[in-house]
């Protein structure tokens, strides 16, 4: 189970390369004290099924899929995100 969960984080076998030396890969926590920070992007219709939410994590916006645990990180800001 553990091997399956972290199979893509094995450094010795990780041969992928990237143009940037440092890439934000995940973020934990969010600006919980901010009022109105969390936004719901869930949509369940006959044709679409989105299970995502949005929250600001310091200077990064995060679109988080609560079913799969995937994060889309919206980068570009250099100071705290304030509201959406």
């Amino acid at each position: 189970m553990e091997a399956e969960l972290f199979s893509d984080f094995n450094y010795s076998e990780d041969n992928e390369t990237n143009d940037h030396a440092l890439n934000l890969n995940f973020t934990i926590g969010f600006s919980a004290n901010m009022i109105g920070a969390v936004h719901n992007l869930s949509l369940r219709t006959q044709t679409e099924n989105h299970t995502e939410i949005f929250f600001p994590s310091a200077q990064t916006g995060v679109i988080y899929n609560y079913e799969t645990g995937e994060q889309k990180l919206l980068q570009g800001h250099v100071i705290f995100l304030i509201l959406i």
């Binding site: 094995n10 450094y11 010795s12 440092l22 890439n23 934990i28 926590g29 969010f30 919980a32 994590s57």
Partner: peptide, 21 residues
């Protein structure tokens, strides 16, 4: 054993994981 750097901003209540190459 992974190519990660972990940072925290302290009072911003977040921890960021960065992959480095």
């Amino acid at each position: 054993f992974t190519n990660y750097i972990i940072t925290t901003g302290g009072k911003d209540m977040t921890i960021n994981g960065w992959k480095f190459y």
